[in-house]
């Protein structure tokens, strides 16, 4: 930091909270590592299918070929499908479902939590009873029922995951809103004519953002695991291959081909680990107590 002088022009430069958080994040090596892994996986999923054009759902070689014994690097599964092609294409599906489920989770959670926390009283009572209802439902079972009732399309799976996992986001948002709504600056904003909508979305939400960003990031990981769980149980889009589905499909042959379940499992593990590392990094970056200025 530069030496402070009396002229205001040379005062420390204005640093937005976002930039400050990024400064903290940059110094966190494990978080950067996580970010790198995520970048790699996202790139492979988005551009991979154009580069590596082997069809993922067709028999291309002898079934159960171990890795490294053919031109198909990671070997083939019980139907002779290329495992690498499956992983690359499955990444797309897994990430899409995970991301959209997380977006849904966060949208529902923040909306419910914000309204409950901001208005309090009767609104809070009603919304919290609904939240508790969803909380006590056995998540996996409820999601399975939803997916089975409607068709197991990617959209339905994402919706099912979102619908069962928004409750903790809602509770966190509510707690933040209850804390922030009593702050002086909220009163001050009200006194110059800010309506409820403005207070909720423009005044309080940005102040509640740091913990919510962390939760949003982590919920992507949770959603990916959830999707894997559903697919493993056979509840997956029949027209799309996801990592979880690959594990489920190859499970009966685990004694003949360990690679069939290992590689998709490794992909899920790495992705969720990377997301957790980034989430932790965000958590530290937004923690004012760890911020050195």
């Amino acid at each position: 930091m530069t030496a402070t002088s009396t002229t205001p022009a040379s005062a420390p430069e204005a640093v937005s909270p976002g930039r400050q958080a990024w400064r903290m994040f940059r110094q966190n090596h494990s978080a950067l590592f996580g970010l790198a892994i995520i970048a790699l996986i996202v790139l492979a999923s988005v551009f991979g299918p154009y580069v590596y054009t082997v069809p993922p759902r067709e028999m291309v070689w002898m079934p159960l070929t171990p890795p490294g014994e053919s031109e198909y690097l990671l070997g083939t599964d019980y139907l002779g499908r290329d495992l690498l092609a499956g992983l690359i294409n499955g990444g797309r599906v897994t990430l899409t479902v995970g991301l959209s489920a997380a977006v849904l989770t966060v949208l529902i959670g923040i909306t419910v939590g914000a309204l409950a926390g901001f208005f309090g009283g009767r609104v809070d009572d009603v919304l919290m009873r609904i939240t508790e209802f969803f909380q006590v439902l056995p998540n996996l079972l409820f999601a399975m029922v939803v997916v089975m009732l409607f068709s197991p399309s990617l959209l339905n799976i994402a919706v099912a995951i979102g619908v069962v996992s928004w409750t903790s986001t809602a509770r966190l948002t509510r707690a933040e809103f209850m804390r922030l709504r009593e702050m002086e600056f909220v009163k001050a904003e009200r006194s110059i004519g800010a309506g409820n909508a403005r207070l909720i979305w423009r005044v309080i939400l940005p102040n509640a953002a740091p913990p919510l960003i962390v939760v949003a990031a982590l919920s992507i990981g949770t959603a990916i695991l959830f999707e894997a769980g559903l697919s493993f149980l056979g509840l997956s889009d029949p027209n799309a291959t996801s990592w979880g589905r690959m594990i489920g499909d190859n499970r009966p042959y685990i004694l003949d081909s360990s690679w069939g379940v290992t590689f998709p499992g490794l992909c899920i593990f790495l992705t969720v680990l990377a997301i957790s590392l980034v989430g932790d990094g965000l958590n530290d970056a937004f923690n004012p107590k760890l911020r050195q200025r």
Binding site: M183, E184, F185, K187, A188, S191, V203, P206, N207, A209
Partner: peptide, 13 residues
């Protein structure tokens, strides 16, 4: 209105 507490009456973000 101008409030008593200038330290907390401005939105920090």
């Amino acid at each position: 209105m101008v409030f008593q507490e200038p330290m907390t009456s401005l939105n920090p973000v």
